[in-house]
Amino acid sequence: MMTVAMYLAVVLFARFHLDPLLMMLPIAGLLFIIGYVMQLVVINPFIARPEHSQFMLMVAVAIIIVNSLLIIFGPDAQAVQASYSFDSFALGPLIVDATKLYAGLAAILVASALFAFFRFAPLGKAIRACADNYTGALVIGLDVKKLYALSFGLGAACVGAAGAIIVLIVDVTPPLGPAYTLLAFVIVITGGLGSMPGALLGGVLIGLTEAMAGLFFTPSAKSMFAFAILVLVLLFRPQGIMGRKLS
């Protein structure tokens, strides 16, 4: 779905010259609606099924998305060339790409908004409550189906925002999604399943590791270091760095 958002950003830019960073919110909004409807229509009927059949469903959805994009946009890489693509800032001895700086700031903004939503908004707390104790949520009359759809929609919106941001840095091709899915999986497991600060920490840790490995070793081996961290975490702290121990 991130790739969908990236192509949306590419098309909006190519056709209407709309900046991806400005389009971040509309794209996120559109993806929210797609995610919300998808949860209600496609995923909800599977909610009581065993996990492997839910997994197969999501794999199927992913295959459909990747190949639809392939049909529509073809296999060639596409990119956005914003007016500031080649700008940079000098911070003392460091030279920072303008695109990367803007992308980073936008990512921090989105993450903060998400944290605030889960911390303070009643609906955000209700989603946490659902994740915490499903039966408990039913018992006090939370509309669990609606909350599930809302969380999936929110997830899709975040991915939409991420797509709009990252398209400034990375060229988009239809099969790009699965590579990021694997990376996201590594990050979430490293940080700890079900922990938002954990996911953030895992993201920074894996990101820095890959960058450092590229710098000091060789860029082609950077995934090796990321997976090494995953293996170490699984060996010594299977619940993840910030994860809760499962009783």
Binding site: P122, R128, A129, D132, T135, G136, I140
Partner: peptide, 25 residues
């Protein structure tokens, strides 16, 4: 309303947040 078997509170939410959840209706 229901006070369910096993209490079914939300363990990682604060006491205050648990109470707030009861008034989402």
């Amino acid at each position: 309303g229901q006070v369910a078997e096993g209490r079914q509170i939300f363990p990682t939410l604060s006491v205050l947040e648990n109470l707030e959840m009861g008034a989402m209706l």
